[in-house]
Structure formats: structure tokens, C-alpha cells
Simulated assay, not measured.
Amino acid sequence: MAAPHRKLAPGKLVIASHNAGKVREIRALLAPYGVDPVSAADLGLPEPEETGTSFRDNALLKAHASAAASGLPALADDSGLCVDALGGRPGVYTADWAERQWFEGNPGRDWYLAMGKVEGLLAEQGPDVDRSARFVCTLALAWPDGHAEVFEGRVEGGLTWPPRGKLGFGYDPVFVPAGKTLTFAEIEPAEKHAISHRADAFAKLVAGVF
């Protein structure tokens, strides 16, 4: 029998991320639960190097780092796009694919560039390539004493090209969730929050720790 989850008490909770879009989504999902979210960026906490080989590894690494540095419980999210025809890539390297190389302009992330890399690899496989994909989200909640809880969510769908919509972030403009005709970047945020991989993981977290 699985051990019971540790409950999260009301109060401050660090969102262990410097990604403004991700922080915004997590704040919205946490709003009903009596916690006071503060981002790692707001606290000036450093971003640890993500050296894990799985979403779980990286989420735990970030959550433990923020909990230890702040003395507060910390929630980290590691998420990404997994494309069937690319063997699950970009996966844990989802954000890395957006990093500009030295010959691609100023340093930083270019998500259009990343979407183009995915599309280019799919196009190499011909017009009948399987465009099935999913977003995966792993949430790790860590306390300063080292205890942690982990929850995973996912949303199935497929990729489209060219990118459509301006409401999302990351790869949202090319991802059409199963059963929908609009991309995540064309769907209103409230509707996206209800069906996303992050929402799926949060539903499991809420059931476990609140």
C-alpha cells in the first residue's frame, strides 16, 4: 500500500521557475488553494543546471534547490513536448531546442526556431509522417527537510504547421490537443488550463496534498 502524501499547509510556496509564462499558469492553478505563490525569480534564487535525464529528475532537482535556498516548500515543473516520430524528442531537451546557437543571433530562446526544428525533422520523413505528440508535465513539491512528492500529467494531440495563435507560449502554436481543431495558442487560457498536461498533473497534486 502506497504511503500517504504529505499535506501542504497554507502559506508561502516558491514556484521554482524563471519562466514567466509557466509561473503565470501555475499561479492561476494554485489560486483556489490558500497558498501564497512567489516565484524563484522574485526571490532572486539561481536557476540550477538541469542535468537530469527525465522530467522527474529535473523537476526534483529544481524543487529541492529552491526549497533549500528559500527555507520554504517549493513546487517545480519540468515539462516538454514528446513527438512519436522523433522517438520522443525533444522531451527533456524541449527548452534546449529553443536556445540560439552562436550563428543564430543573440543568445536566448527562440521558440519559433524550436518549432521549425521539429517541423524540419518531421518533413524529412515525408508527407505521411505520424504527427502524433504529447505534452508531459511532472510536478515536484519539495520541503526544506528534503521530503518530496511527484505527480505526472499529460495531454495527447498532434502537430500542425505553420504555427497558429498568440495566446500560449513555447510550442503551443503548433500543438493541437486531441479532439480539438485549435492549437493551444488559439485556445483561451481558461480552457487550456482545464485540459493541459499541467492541469492533469495539478489535479493529481491537489488530490494528494491539499
Rank of each mutant, 00 (worst) to 15 (best):
H5N: 06
L8A: 01
A9E: 11
A9L: 05
P10R: 01
G11A: 06
I15L: 15
N19C: 01
K22G: 00
E25W: 06
R27C: 15
L30T: 07
Y33L: 15
P37Q: 14
L43S: 14
E50F: 04
S54H: 07
R56C: 13
R56H: 13
D57Y: 11
N58L: 11
A63C: 04
A68S: 15
A68C: 04
A69S: 14
G71I: 12
L72W: 02
L72P: 00
A74M: 03
D77F: 02
G80M: 11
L81E: 02
C82T: 06
D84V: 15
D84A: 15
G87F: 03
V92M: 00
V92R: 02
T94Q: 08
A95R: 14
E99I: 14
Q101A: 14
G108C: 04
R109W: 00
D110Y: 06
L113K: 06
A114E: 08
A114D: 05
M115V: 09
G120V: 02
E124Y: 00
Q125M: 12
S132P: 01
F135R: 02
T138N: 04
T138W: 01
L139M: 00
A140D: 03
P144E: 06
A148S: 14
G153F: 00
R154C: 07
V155C: 12
G168A: 07
F169E: 09
G170H: 08
D172I: 09
P173S: 06
F175V: 12
P177L: 13
P177T: 13
A178I: 11
T181M: 07
P189A: 10
I195V: 15
A201T: 07
A203D: 15
A203M: 11
K204G: 08
V206I: 14
A207S: 15
V209N: 03
